[in-house]
Amino acid sequence: MVWCGFNKKKVHRLCKELNVLRLQRIVKPKYPRKIVQNRDITNSNSLWEVDIKYGYIHGEDRFFYIASFLDVYDRNIVEYHLKPQIKMPV
């Protein structure tokens, strides 16, 4: 193996001078933020979303649920409830 003494900064600079660099790719978000399209949200507390998630407690061998109420305008959590079970109204 032959050591030539170039680090990545020097290689990048030389490639840039020779115009052999490729354009850098545009990183797209995996999950684009979807805002409600059919409503005009102009201030806080005009529209909320509910996000329900669950987790597992290993030491107690049981699940728990967390329901978060999000304000769509500023994406803050307004309220949340943490319970061992969630009963949906009929």
Results as ranks from 00 to 15, higher is better:
V11D: 02
V11Q: 04
H12R: 15
C15R: 15
K16S: 08
E17I: 12
E17A: 15
L18Q: 11
N19P: 01
N19T: 06
V20E: 11
L21N: 12
L21W: 11
L21K: 15
L21G: 06
L21M: 15
R22G: 09
R22N: 14
L23A: 14
Q24E: 06
R25S: 11
I26D: 06
I26S: 03
I26E: 03
I26G: 00
V27M: 08
K28W: 10
P29A: 05
Y31P: 00
Y31V: 09
Y31C: 04
P32W: 11
P32N: 05
R33Y: 04
I35Q: 15
Q37F: 03
N38H: 15
N38A: 09
R39C: 10
R39H: 06
D40M: 09
D40A: 14
D40W: 13
I41D: 08
I41G: 05
N43A: 14
S44E: 13
S44P: 00
S44V: 12
S44A: 10
N45V: 07
S46V: 07
S46T: 11
S46Y: 08
S46H: 10
L47V: 14
L47E: 09
L47N: 04
W48G: 09
E49F: 00
V50L: 13
D51W: 00
K53C: 04
K53V: 04
K53R: 07
Y54P: 01
Y54D: 13
G55H: 03
I57A: 01
I57R: 11
I57N: 12
H58T: 01
G59F: 10
G59Q: 07
G59A: 06
G59C: 05
E60I: 06
E60R: 07
D61E: 08
D61T: 08
D61P: 00
R62L: 12
R62G: 01
F63K: 11
Y65H: 08
Y65S: 04
I66Q: 02
I66S: 01
A67N: 02
F69E: 04
F69T: 04
F69V: 10
L70Q: 04
D71A: 04
D71N: 03
Y73R: 02
D74H: 11
D74E: 15
D74L: 06
N76D: 08
I77F: 03
K83S: 13
K83P: 00
P84A: 02
Q85V: 09
Q85G: 03
Q85F: 08
Q85T: 14
I86D: 09
I86R: 02
K87E: 15
K87L: 13
K87C: 09
P89H: 05
P89S: 09
V90M: 09
